[in-house]
Nucleic acid binder design. Structure first.
Lengths: 240, 240
DNA sequence: TACTGTGAACGACTTCACAGCG
DNA sequence: CGCTGTGAAGTCGTTCACAGTA
């Protein structure tokens, strides 16, 4: 029933979905691969190939039906069934995550907040009482947890992951700066601010080192601006 | 001077760096590719190839000198020169980011906080006064800004990006759920919680759909546990 | 001997370019 | 005619397996 999607495609589907929601709100009923691609920040060939993997049917000469495509993508991503999310660690970051609107927007429900600090346990944050981490098994027994978000310091993260796994969680989003080891079948994704900054730093270091050399090897024709970037391509009109 | 590194390698260097710092604190003077690889959550072949791109010299039969490797990686990533970071948008998330310790830990310095909301401008957050976004050019003129972090709602993000670029910023970290378009030579990286959750959701949906089929097509030999995962490989000891 | 560094095989993803359909 | 869907080519990244060295 579910097609086998390349990881790279899966990672882009949520972006397509957001672009489609925007288009729907703006009143578009159909959209061409070219339009949707620019809205999502990719090129149209990639978008078409991605959508073709879903077996999704566009209409040649017309484009894709926006509402239909939304349904297809939401189905494939499993966004129909509401998934319970628990958040562990309510320091600065956890506090912010608890209030993040994007959480609720796509079928995710924050089921509980956990911490181990006595100063934090018992507090009400964005409408939920923070419970002690020890209660996690009870909560999980009541209402199966789909996804656990770890926003603790690095040293506690592995043991939190172990608890989550023991409670039946099969998807973990890790904000702690460390590697987690989990049994097979459990999916871990990592978000790390410091890593992102260091990658940006590399590219700047690279550019400033290249600057001297670039002056010497300047291309005849002198079109600058095609620098190092994996980012959104800003070229607006490539004259033919 | 700087070697040409594959993007995939660049993205892993910060993780190696963190692992190395941990090892150094634990008193290790040298480390083998195998040890470092597990500490960083990759396999050893990948690690060796990555390091070989830096032209880094390990010692055959021994391993890598921890302190030396730290220096090499920090140099390549450009972490020697302190880079100024500005943060735009001090809602829930921005507030948390302003207090994030990881910011300062690797040569990044928060130079200023900006917002447009009169309720927020003027507040002191983690030791810095929030300034109005209009003052960005002044701040940039005084002290060149390397990296801009956008933590605003999606609708404001593009114009913030434009202002940052106009102020000479060449690296942007975008937390807003939207695509930014920037001129060539400006590097944008995106962090999006909702996307990560949706990817996790996909894998769960996939697993639960596969469950029925898997029971029928169970492999002779019956080794379960090698599920769908791009995550840290949890295999602890693969007996030979 | 124990480990690194690396050519070569492999696999994944992207891009091209066009056949084919509405 | 315009646009999707897709084979085929090209690019990038990973893994293997071993030669070579301290």
């Amino acid at each position: 029933m579910l097609p086998d999607l390349p990881e790279a495609t899966v990672a882009r589907l949520p972006e397509y979905l957001r672009a489609l929601h925007n288009l729907a709100e703006a009143g578009h009923e159909t959209v061409s691969s070219e339009e949707l691609a620019t809205a999502a920040g990719v090129n149209s060939a990639k978008l078409r190939k991605d959508l073709s993997h879903l077996g999704s049917y566009g209409t040649r000469g017309v484009g894709y039906d926006v509402a239909l495509l939304v349904d297809q993508i939401e189905y494939v991503l499993g966004l129909n069934q509401r998934r319970s999310v628990v958040l562990v660690g309510l320091g600065n970051l956890g506090h912010a995550l608890a209030g993040y609107a994007g959480f609720a927007s796509r079928g995710f429900r924050i089921a509980a907040l956990f911490d181990v600090d006595d100063e934090i346990v018992g507090q009400r944050i964005h409408g939920l009482i923070v419970r002690h981490l020890d209660e996690l098994p009870l909560v999980a027994a009541e209402d199966p947890i789909a996804i656990g978000v770890i926003a603790t310091p690095a040293d506690g993260a592995q043991s939190v992951a172990d608890l989550l796994v023991a409670a039946g969680v099969t998807g973990i989003l890790n904000f702690a700066p460390c590697v987690l080891s989990v049994p097979g079948g459990v999916d871990v994704r990592k978000v790390d601010l410091a890593i992102e900054l260091q990658i940006l730093s590399f590219h700047q270091h690279r550019k400033s080192n290249a600057a001297g050399a670039a002056a010497l090897t300047a291309l005849p024709g002198g079109l600058t601006g095609t620098g190092t970037h994996h980012s959104t391509d800003a070229a607006e009109a490539v004259g033919s």
